[in-house]
């Protein structure tokens, strides 16, 4: 215990020394680049294009218990990450925001590259589960400042409910079943919660277009973040 505190102080001292040198030397020493590898671990819930945001402290893409932004509502109800990314881009604490190139199918993987100029970078990401009303897989505010070049951090992401659309599971409301995307009405509890899961027609939800194969448990995604040479 005493040892780790000592280590922590030494590390902090070293870090600030390096930081000062970095600033004197060349701003490029604060340039950070990360590969964000997203693997879909669900059974039958493709992810709509995932939005990955590299930012500094203070930016919040989403927060459990809080109301979803309009951009997050759009992302979670329709799969379109555009509004979420636009909101990020208008925040001066955001270093870089990138949309994945397409759907990530169950068992599939996409690597998204984010870059920025900060020694204290953090990562948030979100992507819709398309066979839900307003469910999304997400990570919020992951501190990446301790990663050295070549080091990786493996995390698992759970599924959240944006709280903006009732979980009818009806074909008309679920994009993966041909349903509508965004609906500006907020007819659910209007705060972000851990997703309660799919009920399905097999469990007696008569409005549901989903059978038991669309169910999921947490985590729904594995995220491997690797710091690379910028």
């Amino acid at each position: 215990m005493k040892g780790s505190i000592k280590f922590g102080i030494i590390a902090a001292t070293l870090a600030s020394t390096l930081l000062l040198q970095g600033c004197n030397d060349d701003d490029n020493n604060m340039q950070r680049s990360f590969n964000v590898e997203v693997t879909n671990l669900s059974h039958q819930q493709p992810f709509a294009p995932v939005a990955a945001v590299l930012h500094t402290s203070g930016y919040t893409g989403f927060s459990r218990g809080s109301m979803a932004s309009n951009g997050l509502e759009l992302l979670a109800e329709s799969g379109d990450p555009g509004g979420f990314i636009a909101e990020a881009d208008s925040d001066n604490r955001v270093l870089n925001s990138v949309s994945g190139t397409g759907m990530i199918t169950p068992g599939g993987t996409e690597t998204i590259i984010v870059q920025g100029n900060s020694s204290q970078p953090r990562l948030s990401l979100a992507g819709m589960l398309v066979n839900t009303n307003d469910g999304f897989v997400g990570l919020s505010d992951v501190d990446l400042s301790g990663l050295n070049i070549g080091e990786s951090l493996q995390l698992h992401a759970r599924v959240y409910d944006a709280g903006t659309e009732a979980n009818t599971e009806a074909a008309t409301d679920v994009p993966g079943q041909g349903g509508e995307g965004i609906n500006a009405a907020r007819d659910d509890r209007n705060f972000i919660a851990v997703h309660p899961g799919i009920v399905s027609m097999d469990d007696g939800l008569t409005s549901s277009a989903l059978d038991a194969s669309f169910r999921f448990d947490n985590p729904a995604a594995r995220i491997i973040i690797t710091r690379t040479q910028p």
Binding site: N40, H43, A212, D217
Partner: peptide, 17 residues
């Protein structure tokens, strides 16, 4: 309950129906 798996890779079990 269902036909063949839609994810043939090792994945998080969706639970028992």
């Amino acid at each position: 309950v269902t036909g063949a798996d839609h994810n043939s890779m090792i994945h998080i079990h969706r639970g028992t129906q």
